[in-house]
Design a binder for these strands. Structure first.
Lengths: 226, 226
DNA sequence: CCAATAGTGTCTCTAAGACAGTATGTT
DNA sequence: AACATACTGTCTTAGAGACACTATTGG
């Protein structure tokens, strides 16, 4: 190589994933409890070091599988690279972060040595987090709020069949505001992203709710903003 | 360290910057001609390897200064981390990219050994670029298009005083569509970002145009989208 | 028939977009 | 006076948001 490598910074690379889901009509983030130093015992985002032969995206998928037991089709997107000096007390470690959206029904926590007590925690009740993971979560929420308004990303956080009520809760939880039921239905139907099915959700002691499904399960940008 | 470092990937880190400006009412990107291998002689984004003691943002500012002679207050934001295997033929090199907006009047190309013929090139006439720099430029244009619609970022690509015509050209060039003059003025004035000055731009052989200025020169998000 | 949630329609107001002529300077 | 560009206003239409009652099931 031509360049003088002695002056270059060669950081370690960690890949951390912010996994969002909707559970009980609340927006939640996946956290794990750290099993080793530094920050042993405290909550942190699922993550791991980048291994030889991996891309950062491959590593993110590995983390999702190992630490979260997530195996389904996941919406996964690179978020940001965090490089603040001292963010890891051991050495210069860059964190290349991803954010993921998963329907809660697709999560299967399998007990292995590697799954260190993963748990979904409401974004309204986050504990202290290790490293700069608080910043990472904040940043990813901002990104998610933008994302849900100009893409069809909602499909990836909902089950295949869902009620209009559930769909509305996704938007309310992410945008952190309540929306009028009638206006929501009107506005969302205009987008043309979903269609009625003939199935109904029974089981309550009330009028059953119609189930809808997304026409496409591929990422797409909207022409009209939500 | 507790983890087994032998399996970890320790990439080189390059910081590359996409510098946008508006020149002759066209959106342009700063390119330099590579002085060494690989891709010697071909056009590339200004960039450099991350040095010890630098953050990626510090490195981006260094690159701006060394390769573009840019010294003013620059709008600078991290864009994305490119890590496709083989993107650099020498070794695994991650490119952490930034994008920058500068008023063309603030660029001062000073001839040094390090400034390898930097030049602003219209985004409509880009040459072949080294590495995956074409992807980087495409991605940054998308980001810029979004940015200009929900922030006041336009201030950072225009001179302090500017005409409504220039302002409109910023939007037209970035959004790649033409906009009705009257509607543009109406819409933009509603945003409340700029104010009239008493100065006029003279010099043509026609009616002089009033000069405007941004009320604030700090990054801010809009409540109403443009 | 009561409880509980699902589902529906109208009105007002704001903003987007289409559109063409007048004003003010220079030469 | 002619030229060149700056500047301005109205109308139509679409969508956002406020708002309250009826429908359908289970028990």
């Amino acid at each position: 190589m031509k360049f003088d490598t002695s002056k270059l910074l060669n950081p370690w690379v960690s890949v951390d994933v912010v996994v969002f889901t909707l559970e009980n009509n609340e927006l939640k983030v996946l956290l794990t409890k750290r099993a080793s130093d530094p920050f042993v015992g405290s909550w942190a985002l699922p993550g791991g070091f980048l291994l030889k032969g991996e891309t950062t995206e491959t590593a993110a998928r590995r983390v999702l599988k190992e630490k979260a037991g997530v195996v389904s089709n996941v919406y996964l997107e690179q978020l940001y690279t965090f490089d603040k000096p001292g963010r890891d007390p051991r050495a210069p470690v860059f964190s290349i972060t991803y954010f993921a959206l998963v329907p809660v029904e697709d999560i299967k926590f399998t007990k292995t040595e590697k799954t260190e007590n993963p748990e979904f925690v409401s974004i309204n009740h986050l504990p202290k987090l290790a490293f700069d993971h608080k910043d990472i979560v904040s940043y990813s929420i901002k990104r998610l709020q933008a994302k849900i308004q100009y893409t069809n990303a909602a499909y990836s956080i909902l089950p295949k069949l869902f009620t209009f009520f559930q769909l509305q809760k996704v938007y309310e939880a992410i945008l952190e505001r309540s929306i009028d039921k009638r206006n929501f239905r009107k506005k969302f139907m205009q987008l043309g992203l979903i269609k009625e099915t003939k199935k109904m959700l029974r089981g309550g002691k009330q009028r059953p709710a119609r189930l809808y499904e997304f026409i496409s399960h591929k990422p797409a940008e909207l022409k009209k903003f939500f």
